[in-house]
């Protein structure tokens, strides 16, 4: 993947480059808007990490220009400003995610991965997370390239969790997906979750429960 980092602080820029390159990405770093604008016009990137406060202009202007050109490259905004207004304005202008400084590198990596995966999925219509994959077209789920033979509800549950992989899938979303809007018992969802957990046992993936909120498909190590 080819990543563009627009960040004027050299320490952060170097950290970003060092953190993202090992994930198999090519990272281009620019410290000024003017350079970045040129690079964006000439080259094709898979993700842009945009710092809003640059010495020669406001990052939001650059974002607006990008979207006006019809460029749909995912953009992750990085900023020290954590005001809700700046966040809303950025998202309104077409940013895909927003991360306030200071941030932990782990969180940044997770966000980047999610954004890349989302754009990848948009591209090939396949949901993947680690060894797990789901082809929406054929409705076939595979774990380590092995086809998982799953009942219909478990398959839908897996699809939903994969769709939100790395973040919490609210339990209401899952219930609606599995049972429609009908009234179901409070334990029904938990039953399917525990069945799916057993299938994923030992695969390096797990489903974590967030009490009262929902479930998250995550790598067992984290």
């Amino acid at each position: 993947m080819r990543l563009l980092v627009i960040e004027d602080d050299p320490l952060i820029a170097r950290s970003l480059e060092q953190a993202l390159t090992p994930l198999g990405n090519t990272v281009d770093v620019f410290t000024h808007h003017a350079q970045a604008r040129e690079a964006l016009q000439s080259g094709q990137f898979d993700l842009v990490l945009l710092d809003l406060g640059l010495p020669d202009g406001n990052g939001l202007t650059l974002l607006a220009e990008l979207r006006q050109r019809g460029d749909t490259t995912p953009v992750l905004i990085l900023t020290a400003r954590d005001g809700i207004d700046a966040r809303v304005e950025g998202l309104d202008l077409g940013a895909d995610d927003y991360l306030a400084k200071p941030f932990s590198l782990a969180e940044l990596e997770a966000r980047v991965r999610a954004l890349l995966r989302r754009s990848q999925q948009r591209a090939d219509n396949r949901l993947t997370f680690g060894p797990l994959a789901f082809d929406a077209a054929s409705g076939v789920a595979t774990l380590n390239e092995t086809v998982l033979d799953l009942p219909r509800r478990e398959l839908r549950l897996l699809e939903s969790l994969l769709l939100h992989a790395g973040s919490i899938t609210p339990r209401e979303t899952l219930e609606n997906r599995l049972f429609g809007f009908g009234d179901v018992g409070s334990n029904a969802l938990e039953v399917y979750i525990s069945r799916l957990r057993k299938r994923l046992d030992g695969s390096g993936l797990r489903i974590r429960t967030f009490r009262g909120m929902g479930y998250r498909l995550e790598e067992a190590a984290s």
């Binding site: 782990a106 919490i168 967030f210 009490r211 909120m213 998250r216």
Partner: peptide, 23 residues
């Protein structure tokens, strides 16, 4: 709910069990 979701996913919260009561 939003704030709880936000904090529950943070690295700092991974050692604790953060949950929502019925709302």
């Amino acid at each position: 709910r939003e704030t709880a979701f936000d904090w529950a996913q943070r690295d700092a919260a991974q050692g604790h069990d953060i949950g929502l009561a019925a709302l």
